[in-house]
Design a protein around this nucleic acid. Structure first.
Length: 255
DNA sequence: ATGCCGCCCGTAGGGCGA
């Protein structure tokens, strides 16, 4: 089973890229973030035409998440039930008895900002939600854009980024608390000493200069670790014409 | 560096992302 996550930074702009990537890579599940389109504007038929079911949680202009799957999507959750959040950042569904939780986590802007407080509250809520989901679904995958680079190796210039948003000790502690629920960072688990980035700033030619951060992740519950075969970042789409600033992240589980 | 780039709304230029 091939699982993937990709922040496409507008599905309107990136639909062709998304379809191309699906056809070339044939994942069983693809989680999408930053759709930036309203619920009734989702291109369901374009995905159906190439064999993918879809569940989505859309929002005009900002946010928006979806799960695409070759197999049917069951027991769909829209947003975290306990958080009355107008921002559409979470969708969950069950595929082949595996719970898939797709998250577009809060950016936070800067450590000093009110948005950072929202990020903290949001991660507290995510922690509670995932804790409950794991009780109900021992085989769970939490994946998406976390907007946190959890380890020093996930950052191209530690000196520049330490104590900045995405890399601060506070954010790393929130990420660690999630993993302590019994979730394993699949790429870091298989490649602990390799630098793999998933996001490169559009400015200053950061992709060509290979200067990025690893902020998109696939966390798998401990029950699934024996099945984990591979984890990777596909940097190719970041080099396509008019790309998303994020690249797809993949994990392969044996069935 | 209040900069850089890109998307959104809307049709100029500010909000937002990371």
């Amino acid at each position: 089973m091939k699982i993937a996550t990709w922040n496409v930074n507008s599905l309107n702009v990136r639909l062709a890229h998304t379809l191309r990537w699906l056809e070339e890579n044939q994942p069983d599940v693809l989680a999408l973030q930053e759709l930036k389109l309203d619920q009734d504007k989702f291109p369901e038929s374009a995905f159906a035409d190439i064999g993918y079911n879809a569940a989505w949680n859309g929002q005009k202009t900002y946010n928006g998440v979806a799960i695409l799957s070759k197999e049917p999507l069951e027991n769909i959750d829209i947003n975290m039930p306990a958080l009355n959040d107008p921002q559409k950042r979470v969708i969950a569904a069950t595929v082949n008895n595996i719970r898939i939780i797709c998250s577009y986590c809060v950016n936070g802007e800067s450590i000093e900002s009110d948005k950072f407080k929202y990020k903290q509250q949001w991660f507290q809520e995510l922690h509670e939600y995932v804790k409950q989901q794991l009780l109900q679904y021992p085989a769970t995958i939490l994946l998406g854009d976390f907007n946190i680079a959890p380890n020093d190796i996930d950052v191209y210039d530690l000196q520049q980024w330490q104590n900045k948003v995405l890399c601060s000790p506070q954010e790393r502690s929130w990420f660690k608390q999630l993993t302590e629920l019994g979730l394993i960072d699949s790429l870091h688990y298989l490649h602990p000493n390799e630098a793999h980035y998933t996001w490169w700033d559009y400015r200053m030619n950061m992709f060509k200069r290979k200067l990025g951060l690893r902020i998109d992740h696939i966390l798998i519950s401990q029950t699934l670790v024996p099945q984990l075969q591979a984890a990777n970042v596909d940097t190719a789409p970041r080099g396509w014409e008019r790309p998303s600033d994020h690249a797809p992240v993949t994990a392969i589980l044996t069935s």
